[in-house]
Design a protein around this nucleic acid. Sequence first.
RNA 1: GGCGGCGUAGCCAAGCGGCUAAGGCACUGGUCUGCAAAACCAUGAUUCAGCGGUUCAAAUCCGCUCGCCGCCUCCA
Length: 489
Amino acid sequence: MSVKIYNTLTRKKEPFHPLEKGHIKLYVCGITSYDYCHIGHARSALAFDMIVRYFRYLDYKVTYIRNFTDIDDKIIARAAEQNTSTEELANRFIDEFYIDMDKLGVDRPTMEPKATEHIQEMIDLISELIDKDMAYAANGDVYYRVGSFAEYGKLSGRRLEDMQAGARIQINENKDDPMDFVLWKASKPGEPNWKSPWGDGRPGWHIECSAMSRKYLGDTFDIHGGGQDLIFPHHENELAQSEAATSKPYVNMWIHHGFVTIRDEKMSKSLGNFLTIRDILSHYHPEVLRFFIFSTQYRNPLDFSEEAMQNAMTGLDRLYECIATVEGMRDDFSTQSKQIASAKDITKLTSIKERFQKAMNNDFNTALAQGVLFESAKVMNKISRQIDKQPCQSDYDLLTTAAATIIKLASIMGILQEKADKYLAAKKAAMLEQIEISEDEILQLIKERNHARDEKNWSQSDEIRDRLLAHNIELNDGATGTGWSIKKD
RNA sequence: GGCGGCGUAGCCAAGCGGCUAAGGCACUGGUCUGCAAAACCAUGAUUCAGCGGUUCAAAUCCGCUCGCCGCCUCCA
């Protein structure tokens, strides 16, 4: 059973097989480093983190390259504003990026090349294109001759004629054709620049990915990924450059993820409706953001709202509570106890892995995979609540194995990775800080209330409970005593 | 104007030609409880934006209409 992936190039879901058996070569467009990252960047990093983790779970070797664009117009402009160098600015925000990624628990790619460290490779590639007459130099700039690449537009499904009709194309008298795009830009005075056969200048945006992917992954590799906004022009142009230079297919499979939206509009700086990763992580546990991001399939738009985050948190807590209950089970079983799990329950719980993989094999359908986790938790809760004191061996084994399986599978999405009791305790402690009552006070009041309850003094008992409720503390009277929790809004 | 995507219960979200249209949140009833909370059980779309068509069979394929979104300029 192979993984099926939606390929932007063919607009179909296709079974995926790497060129080299057992070894996947993946290139993903990373950030342009000039500002803090927002949730959209988080979605990109997390989507590919999940994809790589899933491939590795399936025992593939994955070589994962994600670049940093550390020179471009925006970086130059921002550096000038801040009176600093492009290098300092780019490196500063790369450091900030790592802070966010580490908090989110995103695994590092195999390599993270920077554009400015691959100038020579880009110059070499541009020279090859000029030699083949696919590119031309003009006044210190170098342009790609779009019209000479017959398949131009095949990735984004555009035809040159259509684009020219309605496009806002900058007038540039250096270009032979308005659709030609820049490979090398002559530098203006004071701008960062590198020596080249065409004079001092700097690379265009698209060429870096062609040069770096070729260096680290070869002329043809398995998967190239990025956000849907990169399909055109970035990936279209990359493809055109690389295939023109090598005369080989550039990439077999193109993966593009959807946007994060707010009130159904794309999150973007120009609209001012973006939230940074650190904004979110100051209010929510990183796993809540991960849970939220994986609550829909990666290609669909994902609408951000506080309500959706609360929803994600509730769902994550539910899974943690289920695991905590199983882990809190007395770890000795009894030969006296009867088996509670039905044949149907056993089937459900022994097929978790299979059902989860089936979901993931269908174009990384994390939404469906989360459904498998919830269904499993429900069955486990059902069994757990019926166990009286000690489980029988078969139930004990079934539940502990199921919990371990869920934790393992959830690690692909990077959720449920904390010890369940610690996660729940930490959450309680964090929420306790927000209300004006200490744990000691709560425990004291519970003690008083239980005393009243022993005397069947219900009015006093309820009065104490209401007093705690005023502080958002909910009580739960169980067989082993009275517990408390913070009430959700 | 060109290209692409989406429209499934109050909300989120699976479904990719054929088993009762997953799952979560919310709501309601029940079990449990002194009363609650949590958990569990039960309950909700004769129907998948609308209209036609293909098929023995369509939410799933095709066409048209309506609505929303994205790309065509930097953008995850």
